[in-house]
Design a protein around this nucleic acid. Structure first.
Lengths: 196, 196
DNA sequence: TCAAAAACATACTATTCGGTATGTTTTTGA
DNA sequence: TCAAAAACATACCGAATAGTATGTTTTTGA
């Protein structure tokens, strides 16, 4: 990676980190450059404005991570329903980059920016579509494997499960303890059993 | 109501409206006074600072509404499970004050402010505790009425259902259509049936 | 090697925002 | 009625912020 590309990446990484913690609007460009060795001139050389940088964070940082975290394990799983549960458990309990008090980066940005900025909505929709589709396909595959009742509507379940994930992340932010995560996971497991 | 109290209420109502749409941090005091006939002097006569006003919005506007919308119908319902579903359906589809693209006022504020402000977290926790407890009690009552399996854990279900509500509101903000609400409600209904 | 382009650095600006200082007007109650 | 307190109005301030103007340094490629 060239030096210029490294500078750009430094900006995006720090920006992602600060946006995850404080939100997009509360993250100032001065914040980003103060905690890196990047100057304002370099920042505006790489990005036309703050909005373009925010979109790059979504498209180049968040989307990739989400894809690798989701599509790969779900696509090849022998027990798709179980794979979804494991993914949730990983995201909520194991993932070292996500913290209870800061919630889920994607859901945070949706909450903050969806009503305010069409471009952000589009970029975030791609990520959520990835997630919804991955789960829907997994359920569909579970149906074909005879692991889930044929009457189950895959799309509805995907929406239901994805909603639950976003919501429990928000409850985690509020209460700051993973007790709620544990309770949620138990209920999720029961729910999945009801689909068999 | 005295004139002073009316001024205070005007501020709180407009503040709630703008915070619901744009978020707390993006709602400036200048915004609030520009769209009312309240001056800055009056604003700071009634509230020590912006934070105190924000807390008043939560405690005096949101908490009451939530209590009346939740506790009352759920407490007296003959079929508690059905009452929860009806409440969700009302909040998502019927409620004239809530809009798809702006999501849920409480969940919005949690998302934005929980990691940033302890006082906001406390105030918002009271509201969410109300909701969680109301649902938990309703499930418990359904169990006593023989409408729900004894093995069901009321607290876990309350957390699961509350998460789902917050999450689907966020998806609604992203996609701007109530198709997702409808799919969510169908899945919720199926889920409730699995508890019987 | 060396000029042109890319990449970065610094100082500055216009605007916004929360909050204050200092008033004036309105209400209250003895 | 009238003074004191409550309620409101206006002008202003300092800090923060996105973005720009104008440089200098580094890299590139012929």
């Amino acid at each position: 990676m060239g030096k210029a590309a490294a500078t750009r990446l430094t900006i995006l990484q720090k920006a992602f980190e600060l946006i995850y913690i404080n939100g997009y609007q509360s993250t100032s460009i001065d914040d980003i450059i103060a905690t890196t060795k990047v100057t304002k001139g370099a920042f505006f050389y790489h990005f036309k404005n703050k909005e373009e940088m925010g979109l790059a964070v979504i498209n180049e940082m968040m989307e990739q991570t989400m894809g690798k975290m989701l599509l790969e394990p779900l696509l090849s799983s022998e027990n798709p329903l179980n794979a979804i549960y494991e993914m949730m458990e990983y995201l909520l309990i194991q993932d070292p980059y996500l913290q209870i008090k800061y919630g889920c980066p994607t859901n945070n940005l949706i909450q903050e920016m969806a009503p305010l900025n069409e471009k952000f909505s589009e970029a975030l929709s791609k990520i959520m579509n990835q997630m919804l589709l991955a789960i829907e396909n997994a359920i569909e595959r579970a149906k074909n494997l005879g692991l889930v009742k044929a009457a189950v509507n895959s799309k509805e379940v995907a929406i239901f499960v994805t909603s639950g994930y976003g919501g429990i992340r928000n409850l985690g932010k509020l209460y700051g303890t993973n007790d709620y995560y544990q309770a949620y996971l138990k209920a999720l497991k029961s729910y999945f059993e009801s689909l068999e």
